[in-house]
Amino acid sequence: MTGNRRALAWNVLGAVAVVAGWWLVARTGAVSQILLPPPDRVAGRLLELLARPGFWMDFASTLLLWVLSVGAGVAAGLVVGLLSYLNRAIWYFIQTPVEFIRSLPSVVLVPIVGLFAGLGGPTQFWSAFAVVAALMIASSASVVRQLPIGQERLAHALRLPRRTSLTVFVLPNLLSELMVALRAAVPLALVVLIACDMLVATETGLGRLIRDGLAILDMRTTFAVVFVVGVLGLLGSLLVSFLDRKLIWWRSS
């Protein structure tokens, strides 16, 4: 068996062990089935949810806000990074709020943003956007402030015009750094969106289903939606890894 197949076999075995342990705990009554329904009942509930158009509205709402907030955050990082390259005073001007937001536990932004953006989608978008944008802006600004030292020296030695330096040295480094930040930003944005659903009274979203399930101790629904959120997060991470391999191909070469 090759190393990759052996690793895959252990991966599958680990997942099966978790589900088997869950099933055993639930079926033996070690934990009440009201709190921990067995996996087969959760799977049944998941199939019921998947057949409901309402579920797909919640799914689409979370997915759309996730894509929009991450996309807008990346764009903000790129634009501010480039502006900071043209004029470093721009970065120094915004550095304190950006670093402050980046240092905050992300979900504490939700009630504050909610005060200004109101309930529902706008709060979700702006909260997730703020978290992603702070990460992206801080990352892009760090690149434009200091290229790898050897490249910095080469760019100066060659007496390149600023525009040439931008395209030859800055942009590829900027893209590389943004992709690294994106790996952290994508799951973080999903965390904030789900937390928004649970903290402010949103009408659609996967977090709303979790919140409503918890409110009436409908743990089958809660676990089923948690599973969907987990799969969504996993797919997001895989997509970022794929983009990273394609766009920043030299990192894996």
Binding site: L154, A157, R159, V168
Partner: peptide, 26 residues
Amino acid sequence: PVAYAVQDALSGLLPWLTVWDNLLLP
């Protein structure tokens, strides 16, 4: 332009370019 060979050889090469493209960049 100044021909410059940096001390930290890795950071002086652009990782997204091949050896040949790095050589001919200047």
